[in-house]
Amino acid sequence: MHICTVTPISVTVGANRIVPAIAIPYPLGNPSSEIEEEKAIRRKIVENALEALTIGVDGQRIFE
């Protein structure tokens, strides 16, 4: 399971389960948000990633 911002690279290099992230210097954060809000954003991405791990994929899939 690959969490990354630049999903096209992830697709090119061959990751199977891909979850989009926020930005390159802070894939799982957003410094302009309040701490609590930022953690909620992070949690959402991680939950999305965990859910993706429970789903079978054929080849490659981006879990938007």
């Binding site: 390159i24 210097p25 802070y26 894939p27 799982l28 954060g29 992070r42 949690r43 939950e47 965990l50």
Partner: peptide, 28 residues
């Protein structure tokens, strides 16, 4: 990449805080 954000809070790259919460809650 600009290291300022990750140096301030490395959970932004490696989400240990959130996974600990999920572990405590029994989600994982």
């Amino acid at each position: 990449y600009d290291p300022v954000y990750a140096n301030k809070d490395a959970d932004r790259v490696l989400p240990v805080d959130v996974l600990r919460d999920l572990e405590k809650e029994g989600a994982i």
